[in-house]
């Protein structure tokens, strides 16, 4: 078991070092690269913690899609003119006090989290006991789609709201128009080649991740993020046009997940024990149907979030 411990210590040290690098390095571009590395290492930590569902989410969303977003931002913000600053950077005395205070918070947290003795409180047995009623075998999917389904439903709305918030930042004339992704017409042959070869594989992988999510690690978030990445790649390479935000099919794809979730939830009032309850006989097919719809919505929402606010008027 000592080899495992050595790996854990090395991994934890690397994650902390990457985090420090991200904070301390002078160049913003280097900080973003450090952050992406941090996200990928963190995904490994989740594997070590036996939380493979989280690992997949962290790798796909925390490391992957966030990385694309940040790289685009650092390109837009730190090229040419001086970067935006919100007030002057604090002096050395403030830094020292802040460092001390933050170290104290970290120490307090470590003390509280690690200082627990006796049996750890857990809901795992309860979740395992009720999992058969959902027809699923992956308990995390059970929590997300059944036991705490309201969290997941509201969080879908949060995702849509963030997209509306991003769209609201468009210039007045561009509302309803298209976001820009990449440099239109200037994508290199290499990128186009990659964008032709990768998406068929990626789509299969995304759907596979969604499908196995019922029984093994995976699910709507992770599958949706993979699909989103494929679409982003195709749009950046210019193979698929970035849609105008007013397009009806786009709007339909955005809302189909939350609406399907809601519809099944409301139906539960009449055919099962209440709102967001599933009739035991049909629980698994219903949950899979919801997940399929959510995956599509997540993929489209994530990709449009990366594309950003519309910049130019759409085609009439």
């Amino acid at each position: 078991m000592t080899a495992g411990i050595a790996v854990d210590i090395g991994l934890a040290a690397l994650v902390a070092a990457m985090a420090l690098w991200t904070i301390l390095v002078r160049d913003a571009y280097a900080a973003v690269i450090g952050f992406i590395g941090y996200g990928l290492l963190l995904a490994l930590v989740w594997v070590r913690l036996d939380a493979v569902d989280v690992a997949l989410t962290e790798a796909a969303i925390g490391g992957g899609v966030t990385g694309v977003l940040l790289l685009r931002a650092v390109g837009a913000l730190h090229r040419g003119a001086a970067p935006l600053e919100d007030g002057p950077p604090p002096g050395p005395a403030t830094r020292r006090i802040a460092a001390l205070a933050c170290a104290a918070v970290a120490a307090g947290l470590a003390f509280v989290v690690l200082g627990v003795s006796g049996p750890a409180p857990t809901l795992a047995p309860l979740a395992a006991e009720h999992l058969p009623a959902t027809g699923l075998k992956n308990p995390v999917t059970g929590v997300l789609l059944a036991f705490r389904a309201l969290d997941t439903l509201l969080e879908k709305v949060v995702l849509l709201l963030a997209l509306i918030g991003i769209w609201s930042l468009s210039p007045d004339g561009a509302w309803g128009g298209r976001p820009t992704l990449g440099r239109p017409g200037r994508a290199s042959d290499t990128l186009r080649f990659l964008a032709q070869l990768l998406p068929p594989v990626g789509i299969v992988v995304g759907i596979h991740v969604l499908w196995v999510g019922a029984n093994a690690p995976g699910g709507a978030f992770q599958g949706g993020a993979v699909l989103a990445a494929m679409w982003i790649l195709a749009m950046m390479a210019g193979l698929s046009p970035v849609p105008a935000i007013g397009r009806p099919w786009l709007r339909a794809a955005l809302v189909i997940g939350p609406l399907a979730f809601l519809a099944v939830g409301v139906a539960g009032i009449f055919i099962a024990d209440g709102f967001l309850a599933y009739p035991p006989a049909f629980a698994k097919p219903l949950i899979l149907a919801i997940e399929a719809a959510i995956t599509l919505s997540i993929a489209v929402t994530l990709a449009m979030m990366v594309a950003g606010p519309p910049q130019r008027p759409g085609a009439p």
Partner: peptide, 12 residues
């Protein structure tokens, strides 16, 4: 699985 699900929600 309960905190795991919370983390997934939180990451999103």
């Amino acid at each position: 699985p309960v905190p795991q699900a919370m983390v997934i929600t939180g990451i999103v």
